[in-house]
Amino acid sequence: MNETSTPSAPPMASRLPQPGPLPHRLQLTDDGQLRHMLTIEGLNRELLTEILDTAESFANMNEKAVKKVPLLRGKTIVNLFFEASTRTRTTFELAAKRLSADVLNINIDTSSATKGESLLDTLRNLEAMHVDMFVVRHAESGAAHFIARHVAPGISVLNAGDGRHAHPTQALLDMFTIRRHKGDFTRLKVAIVGDILHSRVARSQIHALNILQTGEVRVIAPCSLLPADVDQLGVHVYNDLDAGLKDVDVIIMLRLQRERMEHAHLPSEHEYYQLFGLTSRRLQLAHPTCLVMHPGPANRGVEIESAVADGPHSVILEQVTYGISVRMAVMSMVMGAHQS
């Protein structure tokens, strides 16, 4: 965007600091209102419940002839995507439009971000256009925190996925989907299955489930796809899918990130499916009213059987629909928090 910036600037990714302990507080105002949405970690149960309640009001909007409210009229929201995304970007865009905001989509191919413009230069240029919110996706953990630390005071930052770190709105829409079907979290057994190690979605889900006081949170994965600190996450670990699925109320399948195969985390897709694929037969081990969830895009025949993904237990498409309501709730809450 700015052709005059130093061509010798190092790639933005290498300069991003890892998220430290401070970001939890960075996202709240002094009186505890949500100002940015960077991570689920450090938020309390009341605030998560407030987000889900607000999302509930927006979910009802689908019954109206005009599926739009004037809440963010005159606000400009920038979808700043340094990493490809279809579902997340489109639902953020639709959420913003249903709140009557103006939306700018900027897709920055990181490999071609070599015109020499640093992330801060990009930010300053966009700020000069008087935007009100950045929705950021970046391959580097901590990118959204970095931006939140450096934006002008009136601007909110929403993390739409940063590296392996967090994807808070995805976790919130998953919680919303679970709550709509199951109500109270305290009596639920929830299993997250698959590539926990590389999954920002799983991290955010585990935090959210624990904050909402879920009865039991299980992670089911081969040892090679579990983070070293898995014991500190407050979950029960299973390496055997059949054992882990027993009596669970919710199964969250994660996308097997095929690109990780190269790094020998896994033998083969076929073998993975044999051991960790969710099939109709295995689904019978779970509670009879069990929900099957997936953040998408699902690899059919790799982590989930087609018949299960499309079957009566699946709420995968509902997750997409609810994603809009949850993102509307977060967007309106962070914009509201700046006013006081």
């Binding site: 409210v69 309106s332 006013q339």
Partner: peptide
């Protein structure tokens, strides 16, 4: 969601569905 004072006072804490 339709108030004209949202830009001054922000989100009402308890919004019930219409």
């Amino acid at each position: 969601f339709y108030r004209d004072d949202f830009s001054r006072i922000g989100m009402h804490p308890q919004v019930r569905p219409s």
